[in-house]
Amino acid sequence: MKTFLEDLKSELVKMQVSEDKIQDILSDMEEMISSAKEEGISDEDLMAKLGDPKRLARELAEIEPKVEKPHEETNQDGVYAFDPIGETLSIRTKLTSDDVTYQSVDSNMIRVIIKDHKKDHKYNVTYENQTLTIDEGKMRTFFFGFSFGNGSSSIIIEIPKSITIESFKHNIVNGDVVIQSLAVSSLNINTTEGDIDMSGLIIQDGVIHTVNGDVKVFKSVAKMLRLDSVSGDVEIQNTEVEHDLTINTVSGDFEANESSAENLYFHTVSGDGNGVEFYIKRLSFSSISGDFSLKNTRKEPIEILKKKSLSGDINL
């Protein structure tokens, strides 16, 4: 063990690590060696644990000379306001772990409010060509060159009532998203872990994709709506879909209350579907082991377009 420490020391000296750092490193190493010995580790295992002193010295030398850089100062209040041009708006959001709320307001300004705004976080908020864009400016590259966001904030986006959103794209890794009382022509939400909560929306064409976040749609109207989830649950309440409602899940459950759709396409591996006062005209259902059941007071005929299930049941 002596040789290990001596080798490490001479390597660190070679690499011009300062005297006090070397002392610090050696005393840490001695502590680890003594802890290991207390546990009765064999010399052989210990040597394996300590590894090559040259390599360790090289790695440590890389770490030491770093000087702390001062933090960038950014916008402290985190409020951005824009005077809307025209009656339509496109929204593009690409974030990592921020919770975002979109809501309609009586005022006639588009506002983006970033709460818990930390000074080393930086967001790009722009409004150009009737498009509101929000993303994270400074990204660090980490594993294999994919990038890291800047931690998380909660962001509120206020949109004047008079404005129709032409195209809405929200990409987020694990922040939640809440959307309230907006009219959207084309809605597209992509999340990995965050939950999605939508209420009072008027949607022409909506596509929502999540890996394991839950999706809730309340009191909304849509022409076409598609909800894809791997393991998150999907819930629909007081919602009317004029044409196709498509639900794809792997293990997530689907629940619909007091809602309606012309055509329901429900595909699942092991998730169950449950409808109460859920009126559909046509149904296409496929599952491996998931069930689908409907409990309605008004008995109206449902045309079955397709029914394919390995071990799941349909109960109407």
Partner: peptide, 16 residues
């Protein structure tokens, strides 16, 4: 928290 969420996103993608 940052590392964890990035890792989850990566693993989520791999999983898909």
């Amino acid at each position: 928290l940052e590392l964890r969420s990035e890792w989850n996103a990566f693993i989520g993608g791999v999983y898909q």
